[in-house]
């Protein structure tokens, strides 16, 4: 041992060797890993701060209230009203939720309470696949399959139910809130089902057995015992689904029509915030304040999504111990 030490150059034993020591290495790596764990929060901070900074020019030219409630979007005239886009975002998202939530909850109850293990073992990969399909492919599906269906559907509904304001407009193209909502509904289905299944699993089996032992049917047990206990968790799951839907870009952009007007019927076209950014970014350099306005749109979108996402994440963290699937 001593002989080997003599052969080593001095910098090796005094400078490098301590780092090769197992315990020093352990601490060194620990420190490095710790620094990397700061990264997620740092990214979050940088994204928010840089969007706020880049939005500054338009905030100094217009007031926030004017931007958020303004109805007119004429970048060439310097008019930037986000209201039609915010309204479009919420219309499409609500449409998707209305269509998605009932089947999702029933499917989740079926998968976690009723069906045989073999079926739920098959269902999980299928739902994962549904979650993994790229949004552009959803968009293609929407354009090819859903838009023509909505086109036919809207003319019929308009003929018979046109007196109801929600169905009042006739849109001959089919590119509408309903199309966007249908595509989005399918996209958020796997998320809502997965979260709801997790939430239902938090109810202890003993509770169910107690109810069944009293002579309740399976559905009565779910209705009077399981669902009341999990109401808040299911709500959080739906909010989580909404937060995914709000930010969805490509699929919605391809089927929703992109007309910058506040919609009033489900057959109206809409222009959600993500579509606004995607359609116009890159060509905004020549018009003053345009890029600040688009980054403002990104900031508004981010704030809306973060609000929904934070609520659902924190609630689910309390309810199922972890937040996502």
């Amino acid at each position: 041992m001593k002989a080997r030490r003599v052969l080593q150059p001095i910098w090796f034993s005094s400078v490098l060797l301590p780092f090769l020591n197992r315990r020093v290495k352990d601490r060194f790596v620990g420190g490095a890993f710790f620094l990397i764990t700061i990264l997620p929060f740092a990214i979050l901070l940088v994204v928010i701060v840089s969007l706020i900074l880049r939005t500054q020019p338009i905030l100094s030219a217009h007031s926030i209230g004017e931007l958020l409630t303004g109805q007119k979007w004429y970048p060439l005239k310097g008019q930037f009203g986000f209201f039609p886009f915010i309204a479009g975002t919420f219309w499409v998202t609500f449409m998707a939720l209305i269509l998605a939530v009932p089947p999702c909850l029933l499917s989740a109850i079926y998968l976690s309470e009723y069906c045989r293990p073999r079926i739920s073992a098959v269902a999980k990969p299928l739902l994962d696949l549904l979650a993994g399909i790229p949004s552009v492919v959803y968009g293609v599906w929407g354009m090819v399959a859903i838009v023509p269906l909505v086109q036919v559907f809207s003319s019929h509904v308009n003929k018979w139910l046109g007196f109801i304001p929600l169905f009042s407009k006739n849109n001959p193209t089919g590119y509408s809130i309903l199309s966007g909502g249908i595509v989005l509904a399918v996209m958020i289905t796997p998320f809502i089902i997965a979260v709801t299944c997790e939430v239902l699993r938090t109810v202890p089996d003993g509770t169910r057995l107690a109810s069944l032992a009293l002579g309740a049917t399976k559905w009565q047990t779910i209705k009077y015992v399981v669902l009341p206990q999990t109401r808040s968790g299911i709500f959080a799951g739906v909010v989580f689904g909404a937060s995914r839907a709000l930010g969805e870009t490509m699929a919605v952009l391809m089927v929703v029509g992109n007309v910058a007007k506040v919609p009033s019927s489900i057959f109206d076209p809409a222009y959600p915030l993500p579509a606004l950014i995607a359609n116009n970014y890159g060509e905004m350099m020549s018009i003053p304040l345009y890029d600040a306005a688009l980054l403002g749109a990104a900031l508004v979108l981010l704030i809306i999504v973060l609000f929904f996402n934070l609520i659902s994440t924190i609630a689910l963290r309390h309810i199922i111990g972890r937040s996502k699937i």
Binding site: L44, V47, S50, L51, G247, A278, A298
Partner: peptide, 11 residues
């Protein structure tokens, strides 16, 4: 994870 990809794109 919740940040929409379009926001990442713009950022």
């Amino acid at each position: 994870w919740g940040i929409p990809s379009i926001v990442y794109g713009a950022f």
